[in-house]
Structures are given as C-alpha cells and as structure tokens.
Design a protein around this nucleic acid. Sequence first.
DNA 1: TATGAATGAGGTTTCATTCAT
DNA 2: CATGAATGAAACCTCATTCAT
Lengths: 212, 212, 212, 212
Amino acid sequence: MRRQPKQVRAQITRQRLMNALDSLLKERDFDLISVVEIAKEAGVSSGLLYSHFKNKADFLDALLEDYQARIVARLETVEQSDLMAEFKAAGGLREALREIAAFAYQQLSEDAHILRAIAHSLKSRSALEREDWQDIRLRAYDTIAPVLTVYETELARPNDETTAQMLVYFFNSIYLEELYRDPFQSMADDIGKDRFISEIADFAYGYLTTPR
Amino acid sequence: MRRQPKQVRAQITRQRLMNALDSLLKERDFDLISVVEIAKEAGVSSGLLYSHFKNKADFLDALLEDYQARIVARLETVEQSDLMAEFKAAGGLREALREIAAFAYQQLSEDAHILRAIAHSLKSRSALEREDWQDIRLRAYDTIAPVLTVYETELARPNDETTAQMLVYFFNSIYLEELYRDPFQSMADDIGKDRFISEIADFAYGYLTTPR
Amino acid sequence: MRRQPKQVRAQITRQRLMNALDSLLKERDFDLISVVEIAKEAGVSSGLLYSHFKNKADFLDALLEDYQARIVARLETVEQSDLMAEFKAAGGLREALREIAAFAYQQLSEDAHILRAIAHSLKSRSALEREDWQDIRLRAYDTIAPVLTVYETELARPNDETTAQMLVYFFNSIYLEELYRDPFQSMADDIGKDRFISEIADFAYGYLTTPR
Amino acid sequence: MRRQPKQVRAQITRQRLMNALDSLLKERDFDLISVVEIAKEAGVSSGLLYSHFKNKADFLDALLEDYQARIVARLETVEQSDLMAEFKAAGGLREALREIAAFAYQQLSEDAHILRAIAHSLKSRSALEREDWQDIRLRAYDTIAPVLTVYETELARPNDETTAQMLVYFFNSIYLEELYRDPFQSMADDIGKDRFISEIADFAYGYLTTPR
DNA sequence: TATGAATGAGGTTTCATTCAT
DNA sequence: CATGAATGAAACCTCATTCAT
C-alpha cells in the first residue's frame, strides 16, 4: 500500500475529526464531549487533534467555519435551483410559504446541532467575529425576498428588508426551539410534523397578508 | 427528600444560595457554573451548599421547583387580575394581542434563564417528572383561551385547544430564542424592542384571523 | 419538670454519646463513623461533643478508657465469682478449658468491637500509653493462672507466666479474628459455634498436656 | 472490565502504582491512604491512576487479584517443592509442624498487609465474589493434608477435612493477629520470634495428638 | 504525522471542627 | 449547656493539554 502524500493524509484526518465532532454534537453539547471521545469516534489518537487545531475551542471554530462556507454555498445553490423555481411557481403565496416552511424545517433538522453549537460558541466571542454569522441571515433573506416579490400582489405588508428578516427570524427561532427541545415537549410530536409545519406556514401567511 | 431547614438563619442562607444561582444562570449555563462560584456569589463557603441540598443537581431542582410554584401562583393571579380585564377590554383582537405579546415578553424576560435551565435539566429526566412542566403550558393556555373567546367574532380559526396551544408555543419559542440569543443577533436590538413585540403580535394576529 | 443539676446532666450526655459510639462501632470502623452520626444516634447536637471531648480521637480514647476500667472491674469480679468456682470444680482440665473457652468467647463477642477499636487506635499512639492495655493482658493471666494451678497435675507444661500468657494470647487472637471476620469466612458458621469452641478448647488442652 | 495496557510503558507504570500501594498498605489501611499519596509514592501524577483503574476501589481489587494469582501459583509450587519433601522427611509430626509453623509465619509475614486488605475489602462485596478467596483456604488445606497423612500414626484425631481446616484456620488467625498487631503487643517480641513459633507449633501438635 | 501515557488544574463532595445564638 | 449553621481542608475524580517515543 502506498502511503498517502502527507498533505492529503492530514486533510483526511482533519475531516475525520470534523465528522466525528459533527456526529457527537447531534447528541450532546460541546462542553459535554471530551477530546478523547472525539478522537475515538474519529479513530485517531487524542494528541493528534492538537496538531490540527490550537485547542478544543479552536477545533469547534473550525467546524463552524466549515459549516458556514457550506451553508453559504448551499444558499447560493438554492437561489438558482429548481426548488426556487418551484417556490415561484406555486399556486399562490400560501402554497409557496408551505413549501418554504417545509424546506426550512428540513434544512434546519439537518443543521440544528450546528446552529446550537454556534449560539453556544458565540457567547464567548468578540462582536467582531459575529459578523460572518450575520451575513448568513442576510443571505437567507436574499433567498426569500425574490419569492415574495413573485407574490407581491398578495402581500399586505411592504416587501421590504424588515419583513423578510422577520420571516427568516421567525422560521429560525420556531424551528430551532422545536428541534432542540426534548421530545416530550415537541409540538411536532403532539400534532404531527406536517400539521405543525402547516400551522407555522399559516403564521407566516397571516403575518404577510395582514396590513401593518 | 430535600431537608426542610427549621431555623430562620438556614432559610436565609438557602435563599441566598438560590438567589446566587438564579443570578449566575442569567449569564451562564448551569454546567459552567461551579459550586465554589455559587458559594462565593452567595457569600458563604462551598461546603454549606451540601447542608441544604443533596448535591449540585438537587440544588438546581430546588430552584426550579421554587420557580414552578411561583409561576403557577403568578398565572393564577393573572387570571383574576386587572391585566386580564385590560386584555378583554382592549379595542379589539389586535390590540389585545399586542398587550398579551408585551406582557409575555416582559414575563419571559424575567424568567428566560430559568426556562433555559429547565430545558437543560429535562434532558436528564424521566417522562414522569416532566408532567409538572407540561401543566404549566396548559395553564398558560387557560389564561389565553378566555381572551380569545371575548374576541371570538374576529377569529377566522376555530377557538379550540390546538389554536391556543400554538399561540402559547409561538410566544414561548420566539421569545426564548430572542432572550437567550446573544445581544448581537437580537431582533429586538435591531429594530427596537417595541417594534419587535408589535411584529410578533402581528404574526399571532395574522395567524388567528386567516382561515385555516 | 425540674431541671437536672448541671453536673449530672453533663454526665448523662457524656454517657449517651459514649453509648452511641459503642453502638455504632459494632457495625463500622471508627473512621467510617462521622461525628454527626454519633450525635444523631445519641440524640444531641454535634457541637456538643466538643464540650465533652477535645476532638474525635479524644472521644474514642475516652470510650476506651471507660472500657478499660470496666474490664478491669469485670476481671476482678470474675476472680471471686461463682464462675471461678465452677472452673475450679470442673471434672478436669479439659472440662475447665471448655468452660473457659465458652466464657471467653461470650465475653469477647460483647467486646470485639471495642478491642478492634483499641487495636486501630493504638497504631497512632506512643508506646507509653500502651502500658495500660498490657496491664489487662496480665490481669487476664491472673484470672487463668489459679485455675491452672487447680489442675496442675494434669499439666505437662510448667505452670508459669509464659504458659498462661500464651493461653490468653491464643484465645484473644482466635476469637477476635473469628468475631471480626465477615460471616462467610467464619468457622463458627461452618461447623457450628459450640463445636468451634470445643475445638478451640482442644487446642488449649493439647497445648497444656503435651510436654514442651 | 479493567483495561489491558498494551504498551510497555503503561505496564511499567501500572506496576509502579501497584508496588506503591502494596508498600503503603504495609503501614496503613487502604481507607487511610490517599490517591495523591499513592501517586507520589509511585512517582507519577494522581490523574494517571485513573487511566489504569476505574477508581480507587478498582485499583485495590486489581492489586488483590494479582496477589491471588501469585499466591495460588506459590501454593502450587510448594506442593511439589523440596520444602514439601522436607516436611514429609522431618523426624516426626512435632518437627514437621514446627517447620510448617515457621514456613507459614514467614509467608504470612510477607502477605499480612494484603490479607488485611482482603478482609477489609470483603466487607463490601457480594457472597459470590468471595468464592475465590475461599478457594485459597482450600488450597492451603490441600497442602497440609498430605503431610498429615505421612504422620498419620501419630495423630489421635481423625485425619479429615475439619481437622486440616482447623489447622489452617488456626495458623491464619494467630499469625494475622500477631503480624498486624502493633509491635508493643506482640508475643513474638515478648518471648522471641522463634520461641513464639515453637509455642504455636505446640498448640497444633497438642491439638492433633490429643484424642477428641 | 501519529500515539497515548502523563500532567495538573479544577470540579464535586465529605466531614471534623468552630462559633454565633 | 446546647444547638446546628458555617467553615475550609482534603478527598476523589475528570479532562484539556503536552510530550517522549
């Protein structure tokens, strides 16, 4: 077996560590995950983590940065995707919002653990570093805005930045609470996931179609 | 069983410990607060905590139980208060919802750290013990339902349990995210607290006045 | 109810503390018994212990000294008792030794916990203080010696100090091990208490009736 | 399951920890020895103990298990050794018992601290786990029995299990008391070690040669 | 690069002892 | 005398981090 070129091998290790942490974050808070556990999950030694990252916090940062890049790429993709076309071709605003609500739910299901980690991590940071994350909110707004424009006639509210931001904020907050809440308190479990999403879409629809 | 201090001095100390924890929970998760810190904040020695509570977890439980009793009492008070009368005497549903939204925001501002601690604590508990907390959600629903009834003619949605529950859930989720989020991501800071509350009330109003 | 005279009241408390410790020593080593436990068992407050004794170790010392006085008194009593007469009037040396063995076993059953505590306590003491305990061994020898004299014709060994001391030592060691050993290793449980005592008496009998 | 160190270095450290504990047990009860002390004695940091053993109790268990294996091996060795041949070729039962008594004393001198630790440890165990230790008693009996058979004509007592067990029990109890007792109470110090052993052998000899 | 043994600071908890009441 | 709240040293244990191999 030929040895992997050093750089490539290091890249692979780095990725395995990242995946390991990502995986463990789905079940536990970052603080409750030990370096040894991450290493074991990644199938490498714990010391190796410190060849790749300055320390444990820095490791989490790296994961979050990677995620950031990925989510920006994904949002860009969405903007030009069939999905976007579908949103625009829906029967009307209500229908479009239901699709958006379902899409947002699905996206956030996948990323909830990361977003929680971000929230957690942001508490120990300077204001400066936060800007990148604020960018993402703006991007999400850029994605929603064009769809709203398509159904502008149905809107009772100005199709401005605040409106779009409130929508993004709304979906984010509701879903993150839902997804990170323990199962026994979940609305989605109480009334069914689809019904839940539909009700959430109705909040958004009602908001948009009621004059300010 | 947690022991029931008989002496006045002990009661005072117990309260100081509780207040210290309550205060620290406003800035940090329970897991990140050390017993020594709590004791220092309370102005007592660390060992003393263990004459009042079996261990650190039990200490948090005691705080949450106290809070539970307080919140139940408060909800009962609200049900018969002038506030309730005000809600019912508002100019209409929209006006009532704004008042409710403002009231809910103010209440949750005070309790957000405790509710976070509850969510955190619930993760390590049996289903049985959760029931008390579910009761509280039902109580909140009992508080909102009568107000909705007053404005029943304005509702496009059935004035049933699901509707009221969605409302409670909505306020809870949105506000908890807002209040526990770090300030740099806060909508209330971006657009102003009153405007934020007003927008949130509009989500609720739109939801209620749009046919299902 | 008239208040007890101070001195008497203090004496009673002291005795209750002593009894509490004595009682607890039957189930646990001194180190594993907390001051609070002793106080609770005695029905007094923990601080009170320190009005009567300098510290925890001093408290044990006091108990042991009391025991010492009691045992000396008891040995004196035995020397002039019917029991002694019985030993001397037994059918022969073997019979006498069986009675002595049974008596010693019964006495040590009652005192095993104290003797253990003594052994434990002696490890942290100066040689000087030990003398009192050596006295007791001599006393026990004084008790046995006259009985041996009665059956002197049966002895194959000189009726001297060493012989008597070996006997005392023998009973002490065997019984203390037996009584303090955990039940699953006990010979008395394996072959029956009476049989065990009889075998032990036979060791003594064989020892005494075999020429040096 | 205790983990099985794979690396040589780890094995050495493990042994150093074991030796350190073994050494400290010679002067103090396990409960009175702190983890920090053990680590200091072993020349390592305290935390390291926990990479080798689950906790302090588990650490003692490991030591005892190692000892158990060693003692079983040793008993097997004795059974086929020159020593055994010597016992059998002694001038007679009395001579043989003196040799056995001396041998047992020497063995127990080396192991007294461990046997004390076992006794102590057994108090917090289930009956099941004790069986291994009972095996050892039986093994000791197996070692003595063949010697007794050689001198069967001198025995006045049946050469059966009870007899052999009483002998093992006798040596164990007497010697453990003697060796663990503090020096100022020791018979061996009072009358000389060899004399003491000789007297002890005489107890055994008298027991065996006196009809039941 | 990679390993995992080793470190040591820091966390929770216990308990003998003191002291205000 | 008596109480029990309060103290603080010391115990066990965890885990991020370092470093010899």
